[in-house]
Amino acid sequence: MDVTLKGEKFQTNGQPPKVGEDAPSFTVKNLDDQDVKLSEYIGDVLIISTVPDIETSTCSRQTNKFNDEAKELTDTKVISISTNTLDQQSEWSQSKVLSSDILHDTDRTFAKDYGLYIDDLDKMARTVFVVNRKGQIVYREIVEEMSKDPDYEAALSAARHEEAELT
């Protein structure tokens, strides 16, 4: 799949999962360097926010926005995944009050399994997925121009819709 960074075209390693498909399982690491698996979130609505580099302004803004929104969501968990190291993510998180899970994919397994890995940059594409309680993808946005923000409201609306399905 093609994405751009400041107008320059790059190719991901595959096709990201589509709406209606089951979210592929994954194992990534949290800020305590412990394994976190998709299966731990089954039963909750899940927003998966991926960023190329948490230390850049757009990625930091995206991670902050979803972290802030996580406080308001009652039955939705939010995770942010980047290819940054544990130390980089820990430093970024030091001054934050975290309401979401900050996860690192330093071995690029998640990025590759989700078809988001960009070999030429050694990063993953900027995306947002919303996964329902059963583990199915109900919303997907692959941000074509990686220096741009995702559509926060569309993703949050999809999550709120899934939360309402419970009531």
Rank of each mutant, 00 (worst) to 15 (best):
A125S: 14
K6M: 10
D120A: 15
E8F: 02
Y152T: 06
R140Y: 14
L31N: 06
D107Y: 06
D87M: 09
A125W: 01
T58G: 08
V19T: 14
R133Y: 07
F26T: 01
A164P: 04
K29L: 13
G20C: 12
S157I: 03
V36Y: 11
E69H: 08
T4N: 09
I42P: 06
N67A: 05
F129N: 02
Q136D: 14
V45P: 10
N67W: 03
P52Q: 13
D151Y: 10
N132Q: 15
L166F: 13
S57Y: 07
V28Q: 02
D32S: 14
K65I: 11
N30W: 07
A155D: 10
V3M: 07
K112A: 05
T127M: 11
S39V: 14
V36H: 05
G43K: 11
S49A: 13
V78N: 02
V143S: 03
I81Y: 03
S25W: 10
D75N: 15
T85S: 15
E69M: 11
S99I: 00
D22Q: 11
N132M: 15
H161V: 09
I42T: 14
S49C: 10
E55V: 05
T50I: 03
T83C: 12
Y117N: 03
S60I: 08
K65D: 11
A155R: 00
D22S: 11
K148M: 07
Y139H: 14
V51P: 01
S49T: 09
G20D: 13
S25D: 15
E162S: 12
D68I: 06
E145Q: 14
T127E: 06
G7Q: 06
L116N: 04
D75Y: 09
I137F: 04
S49I: 01
Y152S: 10
K65A: 12
F26R: 00
L73Y: 10
N30I: 08
F110E: 01
Q62T: 13
G43S: 11
T106F: 04
W92F: 13
L38V: 04
V78D: 02
K71V: 12
T85E: 07
D2P: 06
T109C: 01
L98T: 04
N67Y: 05
Q89P: 00
L103A: 01
D151F: 08
E21P: 13
D33L: 13
V128T: 12
D105P: 08
D151L: 09
I79V: 15
K6Y: 14
T56V: 08
M146Y: 02
D120I: 04
E163G: 13
A164V: 00
Y139Q: 08
D35F: 12
E145L: 10
I79N: 01
D44E: 14
D53Y: 10
E91C: 00
I47K: 01
D113C: 01
E145M: 08
I42W: 06
G43M: 10
D122A: 09
V19G: 13
N64I: 03
A23C: 12
T4P: 06
A155C: 07
T63Q: 03
N84C: 09
